[in-house]
Design a protein around this nucleic acid. Structure first.
Lengths: 190, 190
DNA sequence: CATCGTACTGACCGATCGGTCAGAGCTTGA
DNA sequence: TCAAGCTCTGACCGATCGGTCAGTACGATG
């Protein structure tokens, strides 16, 4: 692996663990055993380093959205595939997801964060089929945010390790359930 | 309102909008029209300011948890009340929720953040009734995280304003639905 | 009037930040 | 052999950070 790629990976992990503002270029350099100047040789600024580190996740999510049918009845049938793809991309880029979830407010002026926000909006509006009631919209938002938050969270935690395949299935099922316009019954509990 | 309370409120809003590390004492002082020294006169450090700003939300959530029945069949019946209380506290302290959701990783060493984490764990374990399968545990986590994330997010956004009472109802319903061990049917969509 | 505690301020401190720059070490090809 | 180019480094810069401190303004109390 090239020095550049090593820096990229270490930076993403640092940003996810201690935040963008809480991570200094010097710390990232120490993580990979090089100098601060070396980091700034490969990336022209700290912000450029963040952009480069987030780009693969953005690309994967963009590809997912681009493959969606734009109109017609196919759109409804695409929902399960979209939910599956969404979960897969998030699980494959959990560090980038963590950075986005926790930094999107403080870093709203950084272009790459803005692009990620636009993608999320697009996915949410697709998962909400037909007439978007406030109820379905909110339910889908809870699902997307909840899944993203959990996936971005379990990085350094010593959380008990559940089988990733099982987690994937639960995420997808729950997401699809929340896309349904109405819950069937709540009598069992209230 | 006293100067101290004014600082407290301005600090919480700043921390929620630009993050703890992204907010300087000088900026907070400017927000309230006083000096940096004045802020440090009322609060012995920046971290103490964060603790004081988060404390009301922590207290409200603690009171909610403390009111729970510890054992017996009452525990199951307490679930709807807990979900309702959880949503109400979050809506009443959305700025503090935003700080917690976005900063809990980077600020894991700050005591007040640790206390908040413990509270969330307690709520989650109560919402999961009886034998906690990975499925129910994950579903509840998605609900808690999703609701918290959305409530902490909509501060400065120009998001279309839905009726807060309607949002509250949707949040509670969705949370309770996710506490159910199994979804009834997904055939309508997949 | 003198005194004391509270509220507040500007000047200042050391540390750390992101970033610049001149140059060292090394490989490659003419 | 030497020039060019890529990788990398330490020294250094101005700015800003959280925090300290001596001192000021002022109302209440004796």
């Amino acid at each position: 692996m090239t020095t550049r790629d090593t820096i990229l990976q270490a930076a993403l992990e640092r940003f996810a663990r201690t935040g963008y503002l809480g991570s200094s270029i010097q710390q990232i350099a120490d993580d990979v055993g090089t100098s601060k100047s070396s980091v700034l040789y490969h990336f022209e600024s700290k912000e450029a380093l963040l952009e480069a580190a987030m780009q693969p996740a953005i690309d994967a999510m963009s590809a997912l959205v681009a493959a969606l049918p734009q109109t017609g009845p196919d759109k409804l049938e695409a929902i399960p595939a979209l939910a599956t793809g969404f979960v897969d991309v998030l699980m494959a880029h959990s560090a980038a997801v963590s950075v986005f979830v926790t930094q999107r407010g403080a870093l709203r002026d950084v272009p790459v964060i803005g692009r990620a926000n636009a993608l999320v909006d697009e996915i949410a509006s697709t998962l909400v089929q037909e007439a978007p009631s406030a109820r379905v919209l909110t339910r889908v938002s809870i699902g997307l945010a909840g899944v993203a938050f959990i996936l971005g969270d379990g990085l350094d935690d010593e959380r008990e390790h559940v089988d990733p395949a099982e987690m994937r299935e639960i995420f997808i099922d729950t997401l699809l359930e929340l896309c349904l316009p109405q819950p069937q019954s709540l009598e069992r509990i209230r």
